[in-house]
């Protein structure tokens, strides 16, 4: 057997090992029910419930922001984010939060917003008084 074949086998073995090891870092996007059942750190995808209150009082605590999101199953939960309120938060189309369920609240330490692109902006900027039509 040539060296190159041995190396090839070693590479394949390593690749399989690495892939198996990678699997442990992979998680499914969850909904709230799964987050409750799992009890561990998960990523939840949802949309902001604009009718529910958003609380952010930076003087009391600059790193405490709470809001409600609804997952794809329609379940709505309060999310407590241990960070400051992200820019353009209200404009997000979709929110991905990473964290765990605690006492019926989802306590998150990471957030990713998907914002609509400006190309989709159906509004035209007018000169006067920042009006939009």
């Amino acid at each position: 057997m040539q060296k190159i074949h041995i190396i090839g086998l070693v590479m394949i073995a390593l690749a399989i090992g690495a892939l198996i090891s990678m699997m442990s870092d992979v998680v499914e996007y969850s909904n709230f029910q799964q987050a409750i059942d799992a009890g561990s750190r998960v990523k939840v995808v949802g949309v902001l419930s604009k009718d529910k209150p958003m609380e952010y009082n930076p003087q009391k605590d600059a790193n405490h922001f709470s809001f409600f999101i609804k997952d794809d199953q329609g379940m709505e939960k309060k999310v407590i984010l241990n960070k400051s309120k992200p820019q353009d938060f209200e404009m997000s189309e979709q929110i991905v939060v990473t964290g765990t369920m605690k006492n019926d609240n989802f306590v998150a330490d990471e957030i990713l917003l998907k914002c609509p692109s400006k190309y989709k902006d159906e509004e035209i900027q007018l000169k006067k008084e920042e009006q939009k039509i």
Partner: peptide, 16 residues
Amino acid sequence: HIAVTIQDPVEHHNKF
């Protein structure tokens, strides 16, 4: 299919 993703990308990539 429920979409999957890497939990903590920085840790994950650094590890390898």
